[in-house]
Structure formats: C-alpha cells, structure tokens
C-alpha cells in the first residue's frame, strides 16, 4: 500500500513539474486530467483494500468529475477562444520556475518533517504537502486564468490525496461536498474567464483596484 502511494505521489509531483514548464494550456489541462485519473486509480485500489464502498464511490466521483467533466469543460471553453491556448508571457522563465519547483518540494518535505511527521507517522505524507505548494506556485507564477484555475485544482487534488491515504475514514458527506463545490467553482470560473475576454478594456478601469 505504502509503495503504491509513493508511486502515485511521485507521478503527481512529476506531472505538476511538467505543468510548470508547459506553456500550452490544453496540455496543462490534459495533464491535470491524467493526474486526477491517477488519483482515482489509487482510490479504487484503496476501496478494495479497505472493502469500503464509500471510497469506491469517491473514486468514481474523482474520475468522473476531476478526470473527465472539469477538463472537458475547460477544454470546451478554450476551443471557443484559441488566443488563450498558449501563454505567451509567463510571469517567470521556464528554467527558473523548475528550480523554484524543486526548492518548493524540498521546503515542503522539511516543513512536513518539522510539523506533522511525528504525529502522522508516515513519511510519504510529505508528497501531498509538496503538491499543495506546487499548486499554489502554479497560481502565483502564471497570468493565464485557466492555468491559475488548474493550480487551484492541483491544490484540491493534493488535499484529496492527503485525505484519501492518511485519513480515509473522513466522513463521506464532507468529501462529496468538496467535489460538488469544486464543480461550482469551476463553472463560475468558466463564466468569469469568458467575461474577462469579452469585456471591452478601458485603461483607467484598473485604477479602481489600486491601494
């Protein structure tokens, strides 16, 4: 079980590092989808090990919503607006962002080691913590709203992985509620992103957001 979790966790970390150097939004969305399917595979496995039908439902929900529905929704939005498909000017260069990603992974491990390891007792718990920071970094380092949304969902996936492995007994209603909320956030974000593109731009508008 532990080895399988390590395998899943490292795959997730690699996928996020791939997202950091990728500039094509569609590829980032598809990578996120793959990451979500991998988490659902882990949950399937967990449900068989623990004989828990609730974890099985969670695995199906993860595959259906995080793996299929949300990426499909974002890709459809993107297809209506090909200009957004490539981020032309990321906030920081690819090489620099990869270095920072590695530094974040080390920082997350140290932080986990100092704060949680003694209580949780599982060293591989550092992986989801690293993923949360990677997701946050994706939000900070990119200007493209779609990629920022993916960054948020990477954080959500990491939290899900953290819960699924370390604390699988968490009430199902909470986890199901999380999934439903995620759908809401993505739908609303999709609408806002379309509006961002279609609203006429006035140079003095952003003066109102200063201070």
């Amino acid at each position: 079980m532990k080895d399988f979790f390590m395998l899943i966790g490292f795959s997730e970390v690699l996928l996020v590092i791939f997202m950091q150097w990728e500039v094509y939004v569609t590829k980032i969305v598809k990578t996120f989808s793959i990451g979500s399917y991998i988490i659902s595979i882990f949950l399937f496995y967990l449900s068989f090990v623990q004989h828990s039908y609730l974890v099985l439902i969670l695995a199906i929900l993860t595959a259906a919503i995080r793996g299929f529905f949300i990426p499909t929704f974002i890709l459809r939005r993107l297809s209506k607006d090909p200009r957004r498909e490539r981020e032309s000017k990321p906030a920081m260069g690819t090489a620099f962002s990869i270095i920072i990603s590695l530094v974040i992974a080390i920082f997350a491990y140290v932080l986990y080691d100092v704060t949680m390891l003694n209580f949780v007792g599982v060293l591989s718990g550092a992986i989801p913590v690293a993923l949360i920071f990677q997701g946050a970094f994706l939000i900070i380092s990119r200007k493209n709203a779609f990629i920022q949304l993916i960054g948020y969902m990477v954080m959500e996936n990491a939290a899900f992985l953290f819960t699924g492995y370390l604390f699988p007994d968490l009430p199902f209603s909470v986890e199901a509620g999380t999934v439903l909320d995620l759908i809401g956030v993505v739908m609303i974000s999709g609408i806002i992103m379309r509006m961002r593109e279609s609203t006429p731009k006035k140079s003095d508008d952003f003066d109102e957001l200063r201070g």
Partner: peptide, 18 residues
C-alpha cells in the same frame, strides 16, 4: 459587467478558494 469588476471577481474566486 466591466473589466475591473470581473478582475476583482476572479481574484476573489482564486484567492478565497485557495
């Protein structure tokens, strides 16, 4: 429905959700 209110909304969603 103007640009700055949409930008404010986006910041709201992404920061609060994170």
């Amino acid at each position: 429905n103007d640009e700055s209110s949409i930008e404010a909304t986006w910041r709201y969603i992404i920061i609060v959700s994170s």
